[in-house]
């Protein structure tokens, strides 16, 4: 369990910006009353369990992948962001990054 013996190294609160963003998005949606936290924890736990069947999760990127997958499923079910809506917007962001000059702020056309 090498993960547990390397704990003395200083670590950032969030290893990646998107970890922070998906965390904050979920907490904000809970605070605005979109779902109760225990319900969220139950869903998230089920996703972790499913992912953990095929490999051992290390609590880093894989943890937040499971988190994101859960949030996408919850929002698809409650209509907040349907899968059919998400895909083109994601593609639009990708296109925006690839067509924005390096160093300039990236934004969607509309």
């Amino acid at each position: 369990m090498s993960d547990c013996v390397t704990h003395s190294a200083p670590e950032p609160v969030f290893a990646e910006p998107w970890h922070a963003q998906v965390f904050a998005l979920t907490v904000h949606l809970n605070e605005t009353g979109r779902f109760a936290w225990p319900d969220w924890a139950e869903r998230f736990s089920a996703t972790l369990k499913r992912h953990g069947l095929s490999r051992e999760l290390d609590g880093g990127d894989d943890y937040f992948y499971a988190w994101l997958e859960t949030l996408e499923a919850v929002l698809d079910e409650d209509g907040g962001a349907l899968r059919g809506e998400v895909s083109p917007v994601k593609d639009a962001w990708e296109e925006a990054y690839l067509t924005t000059p390096h160093g300039a702020p990236v934004s969607l056309g509309r």
């Binding site: 992948y65 994101l68 949030l71 809506e85 962001w93 990054y97 390096h102």
Partner: peptide
């Protein structure tokens, strides 16, 4: 030599998409 902005990782784009829609 990035002629364009550095593309964030795929899950980051998925999060941005959720944020944009919401």
């Amino acid at each position: 030599d990035h002629p364009h902005a550095l593309l964030p990782p795929e899950p980051a784009l998925r999060v941005k998409a959720l944020e944009t829609i919401l």
